[in-house]
Amino acid sequence: MARIIVVTSGKGGVGKTTTSASFATGLALRGYKTVVIDFDIGLRNLDLILGCERRVVYDFVNVIQGDATLHQALIKDKSCDNLYVLAASQTKDKDALTEEGVEKVIKELSKEFDYIICDSPAGIERGAFLALYFADEALVVTNPEVSSVRDSDRILGLLASKSKRSESGQEKIKAHLLVTRYNANRVESGEMLSLQDIQDILRLPVLGLIPESPDVLHASNTGTPAISLSNTDVSEAYLDVIARFLGEEKPLRFVMPEKKGLLRRIFGGGR
């Protein structure tokens, strides 16, 4: 049986899709057979981030509506053998998703894969609801600012009350906190919420902390998941996330501001 993980946040633009792509790639690199599903019907992005947009022939909605088989719609990642993508439809809207249809697809994928990553759209409408409904675990992506934290709190409420697990009285969805776009310097100067502030509100175990970095934008634009950029803070942080998710002990990095050396202070760093 596959483990179903939803990547969600409530608020848009916090890094759900970036995280989904990197998280799925990371698990696949560790040898787990992983599929990542884009639930953002009508605003499909995941295929761009993973650099497979030209290979989308059939999508998630085609499978639900019976126009294509699952195997026709699954796209194998170009660099990683264990990773498959199920893209969203760009022409339909979110009403094309049905609970029965999504359940059928997830059940079929469960037979073959170790992990199913559901990339949730922003908001709390149908797409987001169906992305989290079947989940076993949740990655709650939050930026260090108040509106994002509040929306995450709302999503955590939905995870606890509106999911299949809660409705059938099973063990609760295990939720992890992932803080993205964290800038330790700006936290220190009081412009951003600190990790402690976020934890005071959400009270969730922290799975990881991704520093703010221009590398993420570069990765998205070139269709490479951020975890695959070598020797960057972001990829290191995502690799830590995967390690912690798989039960390894890793200290949290990038929480405190970097101490600049003398030369860097004089000539300025790259960032």
Partner: peptide, 20 residues
């Protein structure tokens, strides 16, 4: 959590926290 509503005809005891 935020956006949740707990109602009861009678008393309510919450053993965890209540969000904004």
């Amino acid at each position: 959590r935020s956006g949740m509503r707990v109602e009861n005809d009678g008393d309510i005891i919450v053993t965890s926290f209540v969000s904004d």
